[in-house]
C-alpha cells in the first residue's frame, strides 16, 4: 500500500506550526518510515489480541485520601506568564 499522508492535517492535529518546506520534508520522511511498517501490516494477525500492557495486572487504585498540593508559587514561578495566581495565555479562539 503506497503511503500518502496529508501532512498539513497531521501537523495541525499535533499543534505544530511548520513551514511549507518543513511539512514537505517531514512528509517524505514519514512516508519512508511507514513503508517499513508495511511488512508489519502484511503479517497475518487474525485472532491475535493486542497487548497494551506488558504485565497482566488490573486496577492499581489508590485510596480516596488527600495528599498535600503544591504551593502555587512553586509552579507559577516556572510559568511563561502568570497573573493573580493564575496562568496567563493569549486570547482563546473558539
Amino acid at each position: 500500500m503506497p503511503v500518502d499522508i496529508d501532512i498539513a492535517k497531521v501537523a495541525n492535529l499535533a499543534r505544530l506550526a511548520l513551514s511549507e518546506e518543513e511539512l514537505a520534508a517531514y512528509g517524505t520522511q514519514l512516508e519512508d518510515i511507514l513503508e517499513h511498517a508495511e511488512r508489519v501490516q502484511a503479517l497475518p494477525t487474525d485472532g491475535v489480541e493486542p497487548t497494551s500492557h506488558p504485565l497482566p495486572m488490573v486496577n492499581g487504585f489508590r485510596p480516596d485520601e488527600r495528599t498535600e498540593s503544591l504551593e502555587p508559587e512553586s509552579f507559577l514561578s516556572e510559568a511563561p506568564d502568570a497573573e493573580d495566581g493564575q496562568f496567563r495565555v493569549p486570547r482563546i479562539l473558539e
Binding site: D84, R88, V89, P90, R91, I92, E94
Partner: peptide, 9 residues
C-alpha cells in the same frame, strides 16, 4: 471569549 484580550487559567 470573542472579545477577551487574554485568558487566565
Amino acid at each position: 471569549i470573542h472579545d477577551a484580550s487574554h485568558t487566565l487559567l
